[in-house]
């Protein structure tokens, strides 16, 4: 038995975010490591160092447009009243309490009963905003440095490049290690969480982890509408292909990046 956790529009947003994020990671790393074989191999499919920058710029703009579309979509959902209180992604005092309860559980306490979005999922969601503000802003500054220097001192570009790099390292480290760890390595998710665009979330898993959400759905009489049978094998295969493909690429980038870091003239 499975439960629908994301709508097709949300799944499409996530798929587009994965595609653009991985493209930015590969082209960005290809440029950062351009003096090493690792970077040259990464850049080869895009046509080399210069073309990587062209792709990085275009996909970066696409990410900003996608981000704007998502903000409009989220505001639309809020304004038309499609969201209940428990569906909100806004951090609340409850999340801080649950965070500490979750830590206690890790050391042997009782598992807290989460609502639809647990604190780590809210953090994942808002981390994209955080990243977009920092990476998007410095990315726009570096998009056309000559034009940027008309509005600020040219030395700001030195800072912008380093902030862009460091924030990119944080984003990649977080997604490839922490986010992938949560959706792949956990016992009940392994080998990959199907909640997104595979075959929806595992109902038993949700009952264990998000009992408050299930209780709210049941009380509102909407639980049956969200329950679905086992997913189609084609979708599951697609999910594994895209998901585990992304995970492998991410892990390859992290390992290659660490091994080659000492060879790069920063």
């Amino acid at each position: 038995m499975r439960i629908r956790r994301f709508t097709p529009v949300q799944k499409t947003f996530h798929l587009l975010l994965i595609a653009t994020f991985l493209t930015q990671s590969v082209t960005g790393m290809a440029r950062m490591y351009s003096t090493t074989l690792f970077g040259q191999v990464l850049g080869a499919p895009f046509g080399g160092y210069e073309n990587c920058l062209a792709v990085h710029k275009v996909v970066g703009l696409a990410m900003i447009v996608l981000f704007a579309c998502h903000v409009i979509y989220a505001l639309f959902l809020v304004l038309v009243g499609k969201l209940e209180k428990g569906d909100s992604l806004i951090p609340a005092l409850r999340d801080f309490k649950e965070f500490f309860s979750h830590l206690r559980w890790m050391l042997g306490g009782r598992l807290p009963e989460f609502e639809r979005w647990a604190y780590w999922e809210k953090f994942d969601y808002w981390a994209v905003f955080w990243g977009m503000v920092l990476l998007g802003r410095t990315g726009i500054m570096l998009y056309n440095p000559v034009e940027t220097a008309r509005f600020m001192d040219g030395s700001e570009l030195n800072i912008a490049l380093w902030m862009h790099r460091l924030e990119a390292v944080l984003a990649m480290g977080y997604i490839f290690l922490v986010h992938f760890g949560v959706v792949v390595l956990r016992k009940h998710s392994f080998p990959m969480d199907q909640a997104m665009w595979g075959g929806n979330a595992d109902y038993e898993m949700m009952k264990l982890e998000k009992p408050e959400w299930i209780a709210r759905l049941r009380a509102g009489g909407r639980l049956d509408g969200l329950l679905v049978k086992e997913s189609a094998p084609v979708l599951t295969a697609f999910s594994y292909l895209v998901g585990l493909g992304g995970v492998s690429l991410g892990v390859y980038l992290i390992i290659g990046g660490l091994i080659n870091a000492r060879l790069v003239p920063w």
């Binding site: 559980w105 890790m106 944080l170 009940h188 109902y203 009952k207």
Partner: peptide, 26 residues
């Protein structure tokens, strides 16, 4: 950020090994 969340996820993954799903259907 990475040090905190890597530790958090690592401990979580290990703790998850000792949990059991409720296999009763709806």
């Amino acid at each position: 950020t990475l040090a905190f969340f890597l530790t958090h996820t690592g401990v979580w993954v290990i703790r998850d090994l000792f949990t059991k799903k409720d296999t009763k259907g709806v």
